[in-house]
Amino acid sequence: MQVFRSKNAGACYGVQRALDLALKASEGDGSAFTLGPLIHNPQVVAELDARGVRAVERPDEATHGAIIIRSHGVTPAVRRSCEAQGLPVIDATCPHVSRAQKAAAKLAGECGFVVVVGEAGHPEVEGLVAYAQEAGGSVCVAECGADLPNDLPEHVGVVVQTTQTRDALEDVLAGLKERGVEAEVKDTVCTATRQRQQAAAKLAGEVDAIVVIGGRNSANTTHLAEICAAECPRTHHVESAAELDPAWFADCETVGVTAGASTPDNQIDSVVRALEAM
């Protein structure tokens, strides 16, 4: 069985930057707290915890050391709460997410109503909504055109969760067009996300089976698995090599491997080695 690794896979710049900042904060006698998991990868979060970088839910749970704002970003109110703790604040927000936050606020000021294309309840989306609202805008969240409310104004702004698919954005824009709504679009889908999705779709169409590596709580990894499944029915989403089942690859001559933007190289290498050993 031949194993092929996707051309674009694994930790993106924003995730690697967040990891580097967290690891630096843990050096020596340092300790730090992240608001929620730094990235959506349970294995990495556990490794950070072992180094003294603990995930907490509220700023007031950080009693010493530094507070790290995770890669998904936080709402303006949470950021102010962090600063009010009087501890050093390390901003590990992905630069692409920061750009989307600024776009949401700008569209709110220009259009008055903002459609956030993304997964309701996701921390990045909650931040985008809050930035638009703080700028005085009304907001709705839509993952597809069917999610759009009926009572939309004639002109809206559109901003996108950085890990969303191109298809999701196009579906929402088609829904707006059907309602006769004019949209001013800020395409904030991350380039790294787009590259991973395109490479994964291509690879999935060329192999007998494909393995997608990453946290099950990771939106971009989940989207990768969906994209691969559309091209290759034998798509398997795992968090680690320990989950691989040899029965999945019975009669397979080729298997592909891809990974979400929150998956470091060592986790990909581990899965590749396990597949090659089969």
Rank of each mutant, 00 (worst) to 15 (best):
R54W: 06
R234H: 14
D171Y: 02
E231A: 14
A130F: 14
G73E: 08
A25F: 03
Y131N: 00
V211T: 13
V44D: 03
G14N: 13
L19H: 15
S262D: 02
A92W: 11
N41D: 02
G145A: 09
A25S: 01
V181A: 01
K177P: 00
R79K: 12
T162Q: 04
V129S: 10
G205A: 08
E27V: 04
K7L: 13
L148D: 01
T188V: 02
V271T: 02
V44M: 02
S270I: 00
E253Y: 05
P37R: 14
S138C: 07
Q198D: 15
S138I: 04
V45P: 00
A46M: 08
I67D: 05
E110I: 14
C111E: 15
T188Q: 06
S240K: 08
H72G: 11
V116Y: 12
S81P: 08
V158Y: 05
V257E: 06
H96N: 12
A92I: 10
I268W: 09
A77F: 09
P233V: 12
A108N: 01
I210A: 09
E83I: 05
V139G: 13
A229Q: 06
Q198A: 15
D269F: 11
A105D: 07
C252D: 12
H155D: 10
V172A: 04
S26F: 11
L87T: 06
L203N: 03
G260S: 07
L21M: 15
P37I: 10
T93F: 03
P149Q: 06
E61N: 07
V114R: 10
A50Q: 12
P149T: 02
I210K: 10
R196W: 05
D20R: 15
L21P: 13
C252A: 14
G215K: 04
R179S: 02
R54A: 08
E83W: 02
H236V: 08
V125E: 13
Y13A: 09
V129W: 12
R5H: 12
I39H: 06
A225G: 03
F113T: 15
A130Q: 09
A241F: 00
A192Y: 04
T163D: 06
V255Y: 09
G205I: 08
A250Q: 14
L107S: 11
S31Q: 15
V212M: 09
